[in-house]
């Protein structure tokens, strides 16, 4: 069915999206918690910054990443000089771009589920002897699990489809940063690659649909748990 080069594309896409989601998840949850539960000056600004990748042209997000994380960038230069790490033009760069683009969607889903946790339950846990951290681990975190699962799946689907920021920041290098959308785009530039494009497009549809179904299943399962099993 698929040529070895196409399998490379699929495997790379899954690896990039998986790493992007796993690394972004704790960051997104931390941001979601701060925005949902803390009142401080600059909260609106933080909320706006988190949402920026959702409203900016992805190419601009990619360009900003290039400026910040490129080898001569403010953070990227330091990373290169201190650890010899480069994020541009390799798969980690593609994962960074995908993670940044997925962040707003993940924060939104998680924030909604954290806001849905009754704060008075946390107060009740405190009167029973729980420290703020213990109350978080035993009350807020488990009760917001559906949002974590939904956020992770949304982020995964978003990462699979990431194009603009990736091609700008990580470039389109076969076997390194050429994920499914980039491979489809490349195929469209070449004469005679129609059947390859079709195969890759079908895979993209199947993977995205799969991610959606899994997220739906996770949400249902957790709701089912709450009503009957736990």
């Amino acid at each position: 069915m698929l040529t070895p080069a196409e399998w490379t594309v699929v495997a790379l896409s899954l690896k990039v999206s998986l790493v992007a989601v796993l690394v972004t998840m704790p960051i997104a949850y931390g941001l979601a918690w701060v925005i949902a539960r803390r009142r401080f000056p600059g909260r609106m600004l933080l909320d706006a910054l988190v949402h920026l990748p959702l409203v900016l042209p992805p190419v601009v997000t990619g360009w900003l990443l290039l400026i910040l994380l490129g080898r001569n960038g403010a953070i990227g230069g330091w990373l290169y000089e201190t650890f010899g790490v480069t994020l541009v033009f390799n798969w980690t760069g593609a994962a960074v771009a995908a993670g940044v683009m997925a962040l707003p969607l993940m924060v939104r889903a998680m924030r909604l589920s954290i806001e849905a946790v009754d704060r008075r339950l946390v107060g009740a846990a405190r009167t029973l002897g729980a420290s703020p951290w213990h109350a978080f681990l035993t009350i807020t975190l488990p009760l917001s699990l559906p949002g974590i699962a939904a956020g992770a799946m949304l982020g995964f689907a978003r990462s699979l489809g990431e194009f603009g920021a990736t091609i700008t920041f990580a470039a389109n290098i076969a076997g390194e940063t050429r994920t499914l959308p980039l491979a489809i785009y490349t195929g469209l530039q070449l004469p005679g690659a129609e059947s390859a494009v079709t195969r890759l497009a079908v895979i993209a549809i199947v993977l995205s649909l799969g991610a959606l179904l899994v997220s739906e299943w996770l949400v249902r399962r957790s709701q089912g748990n709450r009503a009957h099993v736990l």
């Binding site: 008075r120 846990a125 709450r226």
Partner: peptide, 8 residues
């Protein structure tokens, strides 16, 4: 009562 809804 404010029982924890996810715990038996």
């Amino acid at each position: 009562a404010r029982l924890f809804p996810h715990r038996k």
